[in-house]
C-alpha cells in the first residue's frame, strides 16, 4: 500500500512563505484564503521571537522558529468522521480529500479539525487573476476546501508544489509505507513531532527539530518513486561535493529536465488556468 506523508524540517525552514504562496498559485486558492500558512513559533507576530531582548551583556532568552501548517492528512481524521455526506474521505493512498460536489457547507469538519486547516468559501470566491491559476478547478461558494497534498500532481508523478518550491529544501514528501523512502528514513533517523499528538488524530505530517536533516534530496519535480535513479540522503551529499572544477553546480540527483525542449516546462493545463 501507499501512504503519503510529509516531513517538514523546522531546523531548515527559514519562514519564507514560499510554500504558502505557491500553494495558492498551484491550487487556485481564492483571495483571503490560505491552505498552507507559515506560523511563527515565538512572539505574537510573524518573525517575532518569544522572550525579551537581553539587557547589555546578558544572555539571550529569545527564541523563534517557523511552523508551516496545512492539512496534516490525519490517519484517524476527525473531519472524515463528522462529515454527514461523506464529502470528506480518505483515499487509498492516505490523502484526505474533499468531494466538492458532495460538500453541503455544514462546516462540521472545520469544527472537528484541531489544526485549523480548512477554509470556507463564505462568499463567491475571488481568484487572482480572475480566470484562476494552477491546474485545479476553482471551488464554488458554500464549500469547505483545504490542502490536497497536491493530489493532481502526485497522480502525475510530481511532488507537491510547496515541496518543489521550498528554497530551503525543508519539505520532503513520500510514501510512509515504503521503508526505503526518504520520509521513512528521516522519521527513523531524526527527532520528529506531530502536532497535537494527544488528540489521537495520527497525522501524516512530521516536523523535524533538534538535529537538521539533509532536506529534500532531489531537485527534480518528480516524486522519488518516479525517478530512474533513486536519490538518498547520502548520495546527495556526494553530489553536492562536485562544485566548480569538476563541473556540475550542485545538480544533485535528477536535474530539472527539459527533455531537450527549448521552451520552458509548463505543466499540462487541465482546467482553469494559465500556470
Amino acid at each position: 500500500m501507499t501512504k503519503y506523508g510529509l516531513v517538514i524540517d523546522q531546523e531548515r525552514c527559514i519562514g519564507c512563505h514560499a510554500c504558502a504562496v505557491t500553494c495558492k498559485q498551484e491550487n487556485n486558492v481564492p483571495m483571503g484564503q490560505f491552505w498552507n500558512r507559515v506560523l511563527t513559533e515565538g512572539g505574537d507576530h510573524i518573525d517575532t521571537p518569544s522572550g525579551t531582548f537581553p539587557d547589555p551583556g546578558e544572555a539571550s532568552t529569545l527564541d523563534m522558529a517557523y511552523q508551516p501548517t496545512a492539512c496534516q492528512h490525519c490517519e484517524n481524521a476527525p473531519c472524515v468522521k463528522v462529515c454527514p455526506v461523506n464529502a470528506t474521505y480518505t483515499r487509498d493512498d492516505g490523502i484526505v480529500e474533499i468531494d466538492y460536489d458532495k460538500c453541503i457547507g455544514c462546516r462540521y469538519c472545520m469544527a472537528a479539525c484541531p489544526y485549523n486547516a480548512r477554509v470556507f468559501n463564505w462568499d463567491e470566491p475571488e481568484q487572482m487573476p480572475e480566470e484562476g491559476t494552477g491546474d485545479v478547478p476553482a471551488r464554488p461558494q458554500g464549500v469547505v476546501e483545504k490542502c490536497t497534498f497536491c493530489s493532481h500532481r502526485v497522480e502525475e508523478g510530481l511532488d507537491p508544489a510547496c515541496v518543489v518550491n521550498c528554497p530551503a529544501d525543508a519539505r520532503i514528501f513520500g510514501d510512509l509505507d515504503d521503508e526505503t523512502s526518504t520520509v521513512t528514513k528521516y522519521i527513523d533517523r531524526y527527532e520528529t513531532d506531530r502536532l497535537l499528538e494527544d488528540r489521537g488524530t495520527d497525522p501524516k505530517t512530521y516536523y523535524i527539530s533538534g538535529e537538521m536533516s539533509p532536506g529534500r534530496p532531489q531537485r527534480s519535480e518528480k516524486l522519488e518513486s518516479e525517478l530512474d535513479e533513486r536519490p538518498s540522503a547520502s548520495n546527495s551529499d556526494d553530489d553536492a561535493d562536485s562544485g566548480g572544477d569538476e563541473g556540475g553546480y550542485g545538480d544533485s540527483g535528477a536535474s530539472h529536465s527539459l527533455d531537450g525542449d527549448p521552451m520552458p516546462h509548463v505543466p499540462a493545463v487541465k482546467q482553469g488556468g494559465d500556470d
Binding site: 531548515r12 527559514i14 519564507c16 528554497p167 530551503a168 529544501d169 537538521m212 536533516s213 539533509p214 532536506g215 553536492a240 550542485g250
Partner: peptide, 18 residues
Amino acid sequence: ILRSQFQMDSEHFLEALR
C-alpha cells in the same frame, strides 16, 4: 542572509550548519 539572499544560497548556508 536567510531573508535577503535566500533564493540560491540558503541551502548551502544550511549545509554548512548541518
